Amino acid sequence: MSGEVYGTERPRKKRRGRRLLITLLIFLILVGGVLVGLDRFAAGYAERMIGERVSEQIADQNATSEKPEVSIEGVPFLTQVLDGNYERIRIQLANLSGPAGNNRTVRVADLDVNADDVNAPLDTIRSGSGPIVAKTVTGTGTIDYPQLAELIGQPGLKLAERDGKLVGNAPVQALGQTFDVSGTAAVTVKEGVVQVRFSDVTAENLPNVPIIRNLINSYVQKLSVDLRVPELPLKLAVQKVEPTPEGLRFTAGANDVSLNAAGV
């Protein structure tokens, strides 16, 4: 036997190839981490700028809110920048408060705004001039029932949602007695104003006499209220209102909205 050993070179090449592959994978992971970090940094910067502009808009409208929370959805962010189109920009406003007419103030606990299909060419972003437009903007918010009852201003009035309708009840004095009256309200929107109109007001054991009916009719008129939601950012206009267990939930919308004032 010659004593020669064959096949020792191949395992060494395999080990070198394996180390090279591991090194490449680590490099790609590091590069990917840097790119993800850069992407999130750029998105965070844009989100802060949008939040600042929205805050300025709210202040210009004599309204107040907590610091807007802005998130640019869809990933990666830098790809959207290069393409000039953004899937969705979400703006959340907590405790929005503003004038509602007749020296009244309305508070909206949470306003959730979505700007969809935003077109912002890279040249516009770079130069700071040119159109930045969202194809659609929608917003939803809720006015709670204790606040609505306070705005109506009738003592003892309690409001709630029942079977998708706004219902109310309150004590009424008549003939030296206190009657608990209740009724259902129609809630509509007309030219951006929320209108609450009660009807079918009834009460148990209430005498069916003209003087009592006139008293109840007069009381029903006092329950009517026209409520202007605080001026909303991004030219949002109230389109629909519906009773929910938490309060009157409104939906606002606008099309082809310029976002330049919001600082996109």
Rank of each mutant, 00 (worst) to 15 (best):
P146W: 02
V172L: 15
Q154A: 06
V113C: 03
K135G: 05
T124K: 03
P68E: 02
R197S: 15
L78P: 04
E9C: 10
D110A: 09
P155I: 05
G3D: 13
E9M: 11
E69R: 12
R162A: 10
D123Q: 11
V196S: 08
L93E: 02
V113A: 03
D112E: 04
I22D: 05
R197T: 14
V34M: 13
Y145D: 07
A237H: 08
S224P: 03
F179V: 06
E73N: 05
K14D: 10
V238F: 09
L215R: 15
L157H: 10
T178Y: 08
R126S: 13
S97L: 10
T136Q: 02
S71W: 01
T136M: 01
T105G: 10
D39W: 01
L30M: 15
D116R: 13
Y6S: 08
A261M: 03
E242N: 10
K158E: 14
V238M: 10
V220E: 12
G153Q: 05
V238W: 03
G253P: 05
Q221H: 08
S218M: 07
S65Q: 08
Q147I: 01
T8L: 06
L259T: 02
A252I: 04
G128V: 02
V193C: 02
V70N: 00
P68K: 02
F41G: 04
N217G: 15
F198Y: 11
N114I: 06
V172K: 03
A203D: 08
A170Y: 15
E52K: 09
A254E: 13
P210A: 00
T23D: 06
A100R: 04
E73I: 00
L122F: 05
N214F: 08
L148N: 06
T142D: 07
L25Q: 07
A170S: 08
G247Q: 00
L82F: 13
L78H: 01
R12P: 03
Q61M: 13
A94M: 11
I152R: 11
G176C: 04
F179S: 09
L227M: 09
F179L: 11
V196I: 14
R53L: 03
A252M: 03
R107Y: 04
D180F: 10
K240S: 12
L215C: 07
R40F: 09
D83T: 07
P131W: 04
Q92K: 11
T138R: 13
Y6R: 13
A59N: 05
G51M: 09
G192H: 11
P155F: 06
V187M: 14
D83N: 12
E242K: 07
Q61L: 14
R162K: 15
S65D: 10
V118M: 02
Q92S: 09
